[in-house]
């Protein structure tokens, strides 16, 4: 008996559904295994939406680059809308058609209701990674930058002591964002060992963040939630610069260097 090939329309539907299943249910466990995490790491809903949009675009491109393929793809849709000839054994198909035509508006209604109904979940936020630093901080330079190695090591040691006293509870002994208080914060302190955090900003940026804290963030950076206190009343500028040096040293990162023009 010849093997029956799945129609192009259903192949596309199955392919899209498979990708969704992979992103929503398989990848979180794969990511958990890769990252050595204790729990599954879900793909954020916004990202699933982006990836699924790309999948659907890809599928539509695939079916429409050729006239015959497009006709084959649309055939079941056209037949569904037109209805079948009764002589073809309409009873089962007619019921299926009726079911689809009834379910589709209901599905649309459900999606609209889901989007419009009040929800207790927090919305996804477009968080800004590096809020704009005020101009007065931009040209600040570390007063302890140009010193010999021994003096530098001494400043880092002093900064490390200050760091362990003031910053460690949230930012962690290794500056990995895993301090004992971090579990109590909804938005966890950043992992400074990550190449995408303090390594991407200049030293004066880190100085500004410590000095002004979450309250000193500009309006343009909202919505922003940061539990970072402002340290300007607790620590002197010299102490903050030493902490900046120490946190880079503890995390094993280099601050971003201003680049020269090519």
């Amino acid at each position: 008996m010849p093997r029956r090939r799945m129609s192009l329309f259903w192949s596309v539907v199955v392919a899209c559904a498979s990708i969704y299943v992979f992103l929503a249910f398989v990848f979180p466990y794969a990511a958990m295994w890769i990252a050595g995490s204790e729990n599954a790491l879900p793909v954020p809903a916004a990202l699933i939406a982006i990836f699924m949009a790309l999948t659907i675009v890809g599928a539509l491109i695939h079916v429409s680059t050729d006239d015959d393929r497009l006709r084959e793809f649309l055939d079941p849709v056209v037949r569904l809308l037109r209805g079948w000839d009764r002589s073809e054994g309409y009873s089962t198909r007619a019921v299926a058609r009726l079911a689809v035509l009834t379910a589709f508006p209901l599905l649309v209604g459900w999606v609209v209701y889901g989007a419009a109904a009040p929800d207790t979940r927090t919305p996804s936020l477009l968080r800004i990674q590096h809020p704009t630093m005020p101009g007065r901080y931009e040209n600040l330079t570390n007063p302890f930058a140009d010193v010999d190695e021994a003096t530098r090591a001494q400043y880092i040691e002093e900064g490390t002591t200050l760091y362990q006293v003031n910053c460690r509870p949230c930012h962690g002994t290794k500056a990995d964002g895993a301090g004992p208080m971090a579990r109590g914060l909804r938005l966890k302190p950043a992992d400074f060992q990550d190449a995408g955090t303090i390594g991407t900003v200049v030293e004066s940026y880190a100085f500004w963040r410590i000095k002004e804290g979450g309250r000193g963030l500009p309006m343009a950076a909202s919505p922003w939630d940061s539990a970072m206190p402002a340290w300007k009343d607790e620590l002197s500028d010299e102490e903050i610069w030493k902490i900046v040096m120490a946190e880079y040293a503890i995390a094993g990162r280099e601050p971003r260097k201003p680049e020269s023009h090519e």
């Binding site: 990252a35 599954a40 790491l41 790309l54 990674q129 966890k188």
Partner: peptide
């Protein structure tokens, strides 16, 4: 390639997703 290009480092997250991921960055997708 576009899936890679479109993936932000700093993901739009709900608080629930932040809690599950343990921070602002997805440990793998970042």
């Amino acid at each position: 390639c576009f899936a890679v290009w479109l993936t932000p480092h700093n993901l739009p997250l709900s608080s629930e997703e932040q809690l599950l991921m343990g921070g602002q960055y997805h440990p793998v997708l970042k």
